[in-house]
Amino acid sequence: MDALKSAGRALIRSPSLAKQSWGGGGRHRKLPENWTDTRETLLEGMLFSLKYLGMTLVEQPKGEELSAAAIKRIVATAKASGKKLQKVTLKVSPRGIILTDNLTNQLIENVSIYRISYCTADKMHDKVFAYIAQSQHNQSLECHAFLCTKRKMAQAVTLTVAQAFKVAFEFWQVSKEEKEKRDKASQEGGDVLGARQDCTPPLKSLVATGNLLDLEETAKAPLSTVSANTTNMDEVPRPQALSGSSVVWELDDGLDEAFSRLAQSRTNPQVLDTGLTAQDMHYAQCLSPVDWDKPDSSGTEQDDLFSF
């Protein structure tokens, strides 16, 4: 819950932080000083300027060897085509990944977070970031790969997607708890209302004896509580940590079903599988986004697919 609360507080303090972009060759504004600060901008989305290598189908939802083989196929196909790589912007948030063309600003792909089953910074092609997700059109699994400016960037994108998945799962947990509370309150309110109706004398007997209905007592009954809980029953509950912020979080049926399955089948359902080692994760978390744009010590960066 700490990640969720800190993310909400950060967004309320400075929503404009989320509009910064990394990996864009110096076009961005001043960047936060450390990885923790940038992680807090996830709610509205972190932007990464990358190059799209392509996509291939895979048979399993996750796995280092599986993704490595898929990336190898994608890279080989991209090299064989001889075409310049498409420059894209990857927007990562707890909602998922939005992929747009840098030149036309046209939407290429919009992947809900619950469809993503794996992401990684490839070991062999260490400047490549990739994720595996279920197609929104059918049940097939797709591996999408992107060329980053350097290994640090690939690791940073991988960690960002993993963190977005974690925050999304926490949102789901909060929403589920809130819905259970509202359902319980609604049920209790309905029981109270039913009890009051059972003990209320029939209207005919009131008229016969000349008694008047006590409207004041009726007004004191917990009807307002019942209506408050039943009027918006169809509205999706939102985490309290975000009250007053500009973010509107809505959970669709697909996300609810997917996270429910994860909660039942996995020990740590909030953790998205990645190909990063503990050492890689520690190294990337210690980086400032400013470091992502620094040239690798191995030599001059080449803006070309064939540089790796």
Rank of each mutant, 00 (worst) to 15 (best):
244 G>R: 11
108 I>G: 01
152 K>Q: 15
169 F>P: 03
158 T>V: 13
140 S>M: 10
36 T>M: 12
197 Q>M: 07
156 A>T: 04
94 P>D: 05
33 E>I: 14
231 T>S: 14
58 V>E: 01
301 E>A: 06
227 S>F: 03
291 D>S: 11
241 A>F: 10
147 L>G: 05
68 A>Q: 01
136 Q>A: 15
280 D>E: 15
2 D>K: 01
231 T>M: 04
76 A>Q: 05
175 S>H: 12
242 L>P: 12
190 G>D: 03
70 A>H: 01
294 K>Y: 09
63 G>I: 05
48 F>N: 00
231 T>Q: 09
43 L>H: 15
215 L>D: 08
227 S>L: 05
231 T>E: 03
33 E>Y: 15
208 A>Q: 07
221 A>P: 13
206 L>P: 07
55 M>R: 10
237 P>L: 07
228 A>S: 14
284 A>M: 15
134 Q>G: 11
272 L>Y: 02
39 R>D: 05
279 Q>H: 09
154 A>V: 14
49 S>H: 06
162 A>K: 04
24 G>T: 03
87 K>T: 14
155 Q>N: 11
179 K>E: 11
132 I>D: 01
288 S>F: 03
285 Q>W: 08
280 D>P: 08
175 S>L: 02
136 Q>Y: 11
299 G>A: 05
189 G>K: 06
43 L>R: 15
176 K>M: 10
124 M>P: 00
222 P>E: 14
156 A>E: 08
29 R>D: 05
222 P>Y: 15
25 G>I: 12
195 A>G: 06
214 D>P: 06
3 A>N: 07
187 Q>E: 05
221 A>T: 10
250 E>A: 15
211 N>R: 12
52 Y>A: 11
127 K>I: 00
254 G>Y: 03
48 F>G: 01
112 S>M: 01
119 C>W: 02
176 K>W: 04
298 S>V: 06
292 W>P: 09
172 W>A: 03
174 V>Q: 01
156 A>S: 14
266 R>T: 05
252 D>T: 09
224 S>H: 09
259 F>D: 02
187 Q>T: 05
273 D>E: 08
43 L>D: 09
220 K>M: 04
133 A>M: 01
122 D>N: 00
150 K>F: 14
62 K>G: 03
272 L>F: 01
102 N>H: 08
194 G>P: 04
22 W>F: 15
34 N>S: 10
237 P>T: 06
303 D>C: 06
147 L>N: 03
126 D>T: 00
203 L>T: 13
20 Q>M: 13
193 L>F: 01
85 L>S: 00
192 V>A: 06
115 R>Y: 07
203 L>M: 09
92 V>E: 00
130 A>C: 13
227 S>Q: 10
203 L>Q: 07
33 E>S: 09
50 L>T: 06
201 P>G: 09
264 Q>K: 11
95 R>L: 05
188 E>Q: 05
96 G>Y: 03
107 L>H: 12
170 E>G: 05
126 D>H: 00
18 A>E: 10
104 T>E: 05
155 Q>H: 13
118 Y>G: 02
307 S>H: 08
234 D>H: 04
84 K>Q: 12
29 R>W: 13
229 N>L: 06
43 L>E: 10
72 K>P: 01
49 S>V: 12
102 N>R: 01
72 K>N: 15
20 Q>L: 11
106 Q>C: 14
296 D>K: 05
306 F>I: 01
2 D>A: 05
272 L>D: 03
194 G>H: 11
185 A>I: 13
58 V>T: 10
227 S>W: 05
182 R>S: 15
297 S>Y: 05
252 D>V: 04
220 K>P: 11
36 T>E: 10
226 V>H: 08
66 L>G: 04
138 N>R: 15
233 M>P: 12
275 G>E: 05
6 S>V: 11
258 A>K: 06
79 K>P: 00
90 L>R: 00
305 L>Y: 05
306 F>E: 01
245 S>D: 12
241 A>D: 15
111 V>W: 09
35 W>V: 08
214 D>E: 15
117 S>L: 03
4 L>W: 06
57 L>F: 12
291 D>V: 11
302 Q>M: 09
20 Q>R: 12
76 A>L: 02
242 L>G: 11
151 R>F: 01
234 D>V: 10
27 R>T: 15
87 K>H: 13
214 D>T: 11
36 T>Y: 15
172 W>F: 02
14 S>G: 12
133 A>E: 08
